[in-house]
Design a binder for these strands. Structure first.
Length: 603
RNA sequence: CGGGGCGUAGCGCAGUCUGGCUAGCGCACCUGCCUUGGGAGCAGGGGGUCGGAGGUUCGAAUCCUCUCGCCCCGACCA
């Protein structure tokens, strides 16, 4: 590649303006060293568009949201729509550059696809109809249906369908870093859940399952490198493929209280899964072996009410919940201390909704609140396996009565499936260890798609025997804005952000404290120039502000290293290098600044 | 989509219940002085017509109706 310095000069002379602008306008992603020609005004605080706020807008709740607004990284345009200001955009640029390097390293090839998609392709895979309000739809002037791309399986597969003919063309891995649009029901938490967002999405095309396995594994490894390089704490967990189809998927999760997901982890065997599918056993209870007896429980309907009335803890109850599935009513049974997980249940019985009170009465002949597991005919019963053991109390199917002494198989039968929500303290289904449940931000995912899309869009190739075979696909996504938000959520203090070096908007910030002191200014300018020439991204706070203001803003913006140029220290020929995270400060001689900073940034 | 909350200056808020002087405060912003190691101080100044529309009234930020937007909880979620 042409060194950026020469490229920049070539472009300057040809276009007579800043090269960074030209490249940026092309909406592609270059590493920062490519797009950034160190013209001074880009790195001077006084000239750079940085607006910090002492108070955050009251709308903001998540820490990352508050800090991004306060530190001048983003501004909100509308619900779920964000403007990235220069600082924020630099961070995304660094994350994108890392993703690009790691994708290239596993042989993926970058392309760019339209955001506007013709409806036909989405109709062919069925997703035009399957996906509801989350898809932005529109018509062109000729009344043709279009949608805005929420993901690119369809278009990638469409391309593969026309271009790939032979097994010799495979494998292929294509990726892009591109805008996606989803009309989210509830955008929230700043840039964590937005309606428009950038995504690195890649797609693998293989001749066989082995090829898919390999690309899946390569992506998993590349993702580990990407998150590690971005300085995140993260984990890989089993996940529910959801509407992507296909059978196998993992999510990458960054632990944070701001996350929307929860994962169950087993410290003993390493089992880790989204709670949407995590298997677990609730703590075993002692079998009281009551005799079968009906108990009068007037007006006691909920597990809580009955358990208080009978002075028994909730684990000794069977919770009976009637839902209406597409194939009729289904009775779901869990222990009194458990909750039914709708997604787990949906995997067994398909779409369903809770039954209304009148439906319960019509179908079971008893008021909700007194339903029990016994004696139902012609209705599907799904029960959580923990109910196989011990003796329980549940509704008597008779107004104001419950039954004590219910035993599985003796008093009722059911299909046994894990349908409860895994909780902290449950036993690991794999090894019996004690599960930990943690809140996390989803920062990426990988899916084995199989032939779902290739079959629908006729993306086929001819194998060695000349047989037409559907391409085996995988798809893999990462949201860079979520990486940025997770990095902030995981690294902040009361004063502001603390960026991991690799994705900080700048490597160092120079803080000349007294701009009226000639030597201070001169020293700052010298360091600024020398650091720039050493390819260090440096922000110079050259504002005519008091020291306190500069310190506060520097801490808020969170650049990992601060170089403080104070009048008194400078008289001894020293400046201070301060670590934003630890706040440790060392005084060093002017001559050692460059090498010290380089040692920090080269790591 | 269900529940809750909120829209008054760039940001944070008071005023609304109980209608009535020229709509107010802090921060930010501008000018000058001063200050320069943790968002300093003094003096002067600019900026809002109260989310929007309609209505009630002598009079509406304030009451009524409709409407738009934003946030939170839930549902939903490639």
């Amino acid at each position: 590649m042409m060194p950026s310095f020469f490229k920049a000069h070539a472009m300057r002379s040809r276009f007579g303006c800043r090269p960074a602008r030209i490249l940026t306008l092309r909406r592609q992603y270059f590493s920062l060293s490519d797009i950034f020609f160190p013209r001074e005004e880009n790195m001077r605080f006084s000239r750079m568009f940085i607006r910090t706020l002492r108070e955050a807008p009251s709308d903001a709740e998540a820490i990352s949201h508050v800090l991004m607004l306060r530190a001048g990284y983003v501004r909100q345009l509308a619900s779920g729509l964000y403007i990235y200001l220069p600082l924020g955009w630099r961070v995304l640029g660094k994350i994108n550059a890392i993703m690009k390097e790691e994708m290239d390293a596993i042989g993926a090839q970058e392309i760019s696809m339209p955001i506007l998609h013709p409806a036909e392709i989405w109709q062919q895979t069925g997703r035009w109809d399957v996906i509801g309000g989350e898809m932005f739809r529109l018509k062109d002037r000729n009344d043709r249906d279009f949608c805005l791309g929420m993901t690119h399986e369809e278009i990638m597969t469409w391309l593969a369908a026309r271009e790939i003919r032979s097994y010799r063309d495979l494998p292929q891995v294509w990726y892009q870093i591109q805008t996606k649009l989803r009309d989210e029901a509830r955008p929230k938490s700043g840039v964590l859940r937005t309606r428009e967002f950038i995504m690195k999405d890649s797609y693998s095309f293989d001749a066989d399952e082995q090829g898919l396995d390999k690309n899946y594994q390569l992506h998993a490894e590349a993702y580990h490198r990407i998150y590690s390089r971005c300085g995140l704490k993260f984990m890989q967990v089993e996940s529910d493929p959801g509407m992507m189809g296909g059978g196998y998927s993992h999510e990458f999760m960054a632990p944070s209280p701001a996350g929307e997901d929860q994962v169950a982890l087993c410290p003993k065997c390493g089992y880790s899964a989204n709670v949407e599918l995590a298997l677990s056993f609730s703590p075993v209870i002692e079998d009281r072996e009551w005799q079968h007896e009906e108990v009068h429980t007037p007006e006691k309907r909920t597990v809580q009410e009955v358990s208080r009335f009978l002075k028994l803890t909730s684990e000794y109850f069977i919770k009976s919940i009637l839902v209406i599935s597409d194939n009729g009513p289904v009775l779901a049974l869990v222990r009194g201390d458990q909750e039914v997980h709708d997604k787990k249940l949906a995997k067994i019985i398909g779409n369903h909704r809770p039954a209304q009170k009148t439906e319960v009465k019509d179908i079971l002949g008893v008021e909700a609140g007194f339903i029990g597991p016994m004696g139902h005919t012609g209705i599907r019963v799904i029960a959580d396996p923990c109910l196989k053991h011990a003796t329980y109390v549940s509704g008597a199917n008779k107004q104001h009565y419950h039954v004590k002494g219910i035993k599985a198989e003796r008093d009722f039968t059911a299909e046994w499936h894990d349908i409860h929500i895994a909780r902290q303290g449950d036993s690991c289904a794999a090894c019996g260890g004690v599960l930990v449940v943690e809140r996390v931000i989803e920062i990426g995912n990988i899916f084995k798609l199989g032939t779902k899309y290739s079959a629908a869009l006729k993306a086929v190739y001819l194998d060695e025997n000349g047989a037409e075979t559907p391409i085996i696909m995988g798809s893999y996504g990462i949201g860079p804005a979520r990486i940025a938000a997770a990095a902030i959520e995981q690294n902040n203090d009361k004063d502001g952000m603390i960026w991991p070096r690799s994705i900080a908007p700048f490597d160092v910030e120079l803080l000349p404290l007294n701009m009226n002191d000639e030597l201070t200014v001169k020293t700052a300018e010298n360091l600024y120039r020398e650091l720039s020439l050493s390819h260090v991204d440096v922000l110079l706070d050259d504002r005519e502000e008091r020291a306190g203001v500069k310190f506060k803003d520097a801490d808020l913006i969170g650049i990992p290293t601060q170089i403080i140029i104070g009048e008194k220290t400078l008289k001894e020929g020293l400046v201070e290098i301060k670590d934003r995270k630890t706040r440790e400060t060392v005084k060093i001689g002017l001559g050692d600044v460059i090498s010290t900073v380089k040692a920090l940034t080269d790591n």
